[in-house]
């Protein structure tokens, strides 16, 4: 019996709660208590410094951070928490509040936030969110998740496009090769039997497709294409 009991206590998720508002704090505690495996090991209501000290001392599995007033330095706070907990890969940070725009969420996640629990979500889901963060998953409101994913896909897509020359037409690729050989527009026009204006037009198009305005960068793209 004793062994089972100790096993059960081992499985408990150590949660540290930061919330300066008594009213919201009581709601958070009530919601977290619905998760039998959740163990609230500490509550911080005062300053960010005291929160950071508690994280260092208690080494929680999940940090639930709620702040009613928007903090201008929230990213710095998140980075400080990440710095304390990052190496151990144990403590995970979840913010509670009114969900900010998607760009801000991406920025916050970049600063170490693993989850954002919207105040409008059913309180019963807070324990689920905490479990997800503990399992190293990400928790975000469902409606925001799709717009964030769209954003990420467009960024990754753009990233890939920037790095490939696949989008160039065969003629544009020939012009690019000539640029990589150090030829002037006039030399390119003579070699390709086209006018200088057409060369300029091709180069303008290449600039737009590769997202650059530098002829040297085009030459480097051409050199790179010859290497692999």
């Amino acid at each position: 019996m004793k062994k089972n009991k100790s096993k059960a206590s081992e499985k408990k998720i150590k949660v540290l709660v930061y919330c300066p508002s008594d009213l919201i704090l009581s709601g958070i505690i009530k919601a977290l208590e619905k998760g039998p495996e959740i163990n609230i090991i500490g509550i911080e209501k005062s300053t960010i410094d005291s929160l950071l000290n508690s994280i260092k001392a208690d080494n929680p599995d999940v940090i639930v951070f709620s702040n009613t007033d928007p903090l201008p330095n929230i990213k710095e706070v998140c980075k400080a928490i990440k710095d304390i907990t990052g190496d151990k890969k144990k403590s995970k940070l979840m913010l509670i509040g009114n969900i900010p725009p998607q760009e801000e969420i991406v920025g916050l996640m970049n600063s170490g936030v693993r989850g954002y629990f919207d105040l409008n979500e059913p309180s019963g889901q807070l324990a689920d969110a905490t479990r997800s963060i503990y399992r190293e998953e990400i928790w975000l409101p469902r409606d925001k998740m799709s717009s964030i994913m769209d954003r990420i896909i467009s960024v990754v897509g753009r990233d890939l496009k920037e790095k490939t020359l696949d989008q160039l037409t065969p003629t544009e690729f020939k012009v690019l090769r000539h640029i990589g050989q150090g030829k002037s527009n006039e030399q390119i026009a003579n070699e390709m039997f086209i006018s200088k204006n057409t060369v300029r037009s091709h180069i303008k198009s290449i600039y737009a497709k590769l997202g650059t305005h530098s002829r040297l960068q085009l030459a480097l793209y051409a050199i790179n294409s010859a290497l692999f």
Binding site: V106, G107, V155, K163, T212, Q217
Partner: peptide, 12 residues
Amino acid sequence: IHDQLLNRRREW
């Protein structure tokens, strides 16, 4: 946002 978060360099 791409420039802000992922790549602040002007050229790749």
